[in-house]
Amino acid sequence: MMGPARRVTVAHLWVAAMVLVTPVSAGALHVEEVAPGVFVHVGQVALAAADNGGDIANLGFIVGEEAVAVVDTGSTPAIGKDLRAAIEAVTDRPVRYVINTHMHPDHVLGNAAFRGTGPGGGDPFVVAHHKLARALAGRAAHYVASTDAALGPGHVTAGDVVLPDEEVEDVRRLDLGNRTIVLKAWPTAHSDNDLTVFDPATGTLFAGDLLFMHHLPVVDGSIAGWLGLTLEAAASDGAPVRRVVPGHGPAIGHLPQDEDVQRDYLAAVAQEVRAAIADGVPLGRMVRDARIPSGRWALAEDFHRRNLTAAFAELEWE
């Protein structure tokens, strides 16, 4: 009697969760279902700090008939664990894939929380751009130290850094059971290892940090490369991009308008930097004297000078 009764209960919970999209686990991250079977957790538009526990990036997951794919795991294993609880509130299917959209700590340092959540209690495949492993390995010690500085010690250790075991060079399809998602590796833009995840069934694109909304875009790869791409190119399998999940900002945005807003900012940075280079203005002075954009963008004070610096060093070679 116990067995069947329990199964019924679990099934009811599962249905309730699918309808209400309310996490049942106390520690579960709040997620919203932006399209059937596609869930997004909206991180705060903020720097990692003790008061937000590093919950500063958008995370998500896609549920197929057999398995789940997670898209980014947060700044710490604790956030990854809460994302895992949110998934368990929605489905009991295993996590077959943990996908990282790029190497930044707020997107990958929760990976360790998914150990043992794969099929049969094994580990999921960690999937990323083929250049992520090098980029993350080189920065991991720095990321652990900067997490200690921002959140206090003990939230992340070197042992929590999980590098990918499946790498994407161009395009790769992953089957979740009657639902195939399309991963695309991009040339250097936000970073040198940007990867997007497209769900043709719903036209939902997880852009990672190739799209920022509200949060000032951050250049840690190539501003010229970023300006040279369009996210519409992620459309695949006959499906257009109907909605896009930015790496930072609200749960969803739309193409092309939200990408255009970002492009306007990046183009203005490139123009200002090219003018300074042509005038022989040294990097240090240009950055010191720069006017910080006001209005639309959050965190401009924290990232605009950095973008000018990176753009200057890059565009000086033109």
């Binding site: 720097l47 720095h142 040198d192 840690d220 790869g221 890059e314």
Partner: peptide, 9 residues
Amino acid sequence: GGCAAPMAK
């Protein structure tokens, strides 16, 4: 802080 690291981009 954060994602800025002293590494080649």
